[in-house]
């Protein structure tokens, strides 16, 4: 009986002192945080405004325009999903869409295989910093430059043909014939993009501690086994990120196609080498026909849908339990 009140008292006093100190702490913490929270409008507001007005609003507008027949001036006529059907019956669009898929998958797979191979070589190579810096640089150059350069390299009197001449090739193929353009564009893209992805993959491969490799060597693992059981599982997440990055950037490819091999005279590239981005631009802004804003945005929205589907699939497929190391 006599013990309980004191117990209570001590309990209460201890609790109260603890709670006051906690309250103090919380008051301290919350005063910074409360102050910080007040900054929502001035800090986040401008960025939110710019982004919403100049990016999200146009993106929503694109959905809206794609449901109309519209030439940019005059009245908009609501046609529902007609533009989408129209576009999928348009041979030019199907060609452009096929090209985009070729870029996405064929070029994409080539880039990843080569980049991964380069990574494995670069990993413990002498002078890897220099090599890495050089192969990264093309990423910083406007793709227009490669398009124009390719025009000169494959020119009838250009670099490739003068190089082939000593080997007895007197009748070289017409590199820049309209049907050859797209394969050349694909090769150009592989050459200029691989370095960037190699650099990113390297960041993943570099994280693997060296004693894993030594352990492999001691255990007598073949290089293939080492690749299969050590390198791949530990870089898997970086691979996933790279795949998403390539998906997004490959759908945007425009510049290199636009000027590849010089201009064809009409100011637009031959239709055999179009991508969906080129299709969108030409359909809307080429001076040759009445602009069809509806069909143009519909094709852009289709590309966006393609990106979203692929990104979701990629994220699902690449999801593994992260390996902690």
């Amino acid at each position: 009986m006599t013990l309980t009140p004191t117990k209570d008292q001590t309990g209460v006093s201890a609790r109260s002192s603890r709670s006051t100190s906690r309250k103090l702490n919380r008051a301290e913490g919350s005063s910074i945080e409360r102050q910080r929270r007040k900054l929502l409008i001035p800090f986040v507001g401008p960025a939110f405004l710019f982004y919403t007005l100049l990016f999200v609003l146009p993106a929503a507008g694109a959905m809206w325009i794609s449901l109309h027949r519209w030439s940019g001036a005059g009245p908009m006529k609501f046609v529902g999903l007609d533009n989408y059907f129209l576009v999928f019956r348009d041979e030019l669009f199907l060609k452009a869409f096929g090209n985009t898929l070729l870029l996405l998958f064929v070029v994409g797979i080539a880039i990843f295989v080569i980049a991964f191979g380069l990574c494995l070589i670069l990993r413990d190579m002498v002078g890897k910093k220099i090599a890495r810096s050089v192969i990264f640089f093309p990423h910083l150059i406007n793709a227009l430059v490669f398009g124009v350069l390719a025009g000169f390299i494959f020119n009838p009197g250009g670099l490739v043909n003068t190089l082939l001449k000593p080997f007895g090739v007197t009748d070289p193929p017409k590199w820049l014939a309209q049907d050859n353009l797209f394969p050349l564009i694909m090769v150009t893209l592989i050459c200029t993009t691989t370095g960037y992805f190699t650099t990113i993959l390297m960041a993943g491969v570099d994280r693997i501690p060296p004693y894993y490799y030594e352990d492999c060597a001691l255990a007598g693992a073949t290089p293939f086994q080492r690749l299969r059981y050590v390198v791949l599982p530990l870089t898997w997440d970086v691979f996933g990120t790279c795949a998403v990055l390539w998906t997004i950037s490959s759908i945007k490819i425009f510049e290199v196609v636009w000027v590849f091999g010089g201009s064809s005279g009409a100011g637009i590239p031959p239709t055999q080498s179009w991508t969906t981005a080129v299709y969108t631009y030409v359909t809307a802004f080429s001076a040759q026909s009445t602009p069809a804003y509806g069909a143009a945005t519909a094709s852009a929205i289709i590309s966006l849908a393609l990106i979203s589907v692929l990104v979701v699939i990629l994220r699902r497929a690449m999801r593994r339990d992260a390996v902690e190391f």
Binding site: P58, A59, G61, Y293, A300, S303
Partner: peptide
């Protein structure tokens, strides 16, 4: 979101 989507709007 690729640039060609917001281009026309």
């Amino acid at each position: 979101i690729p640039a060609q989507v917001i281009l026309i709007p």
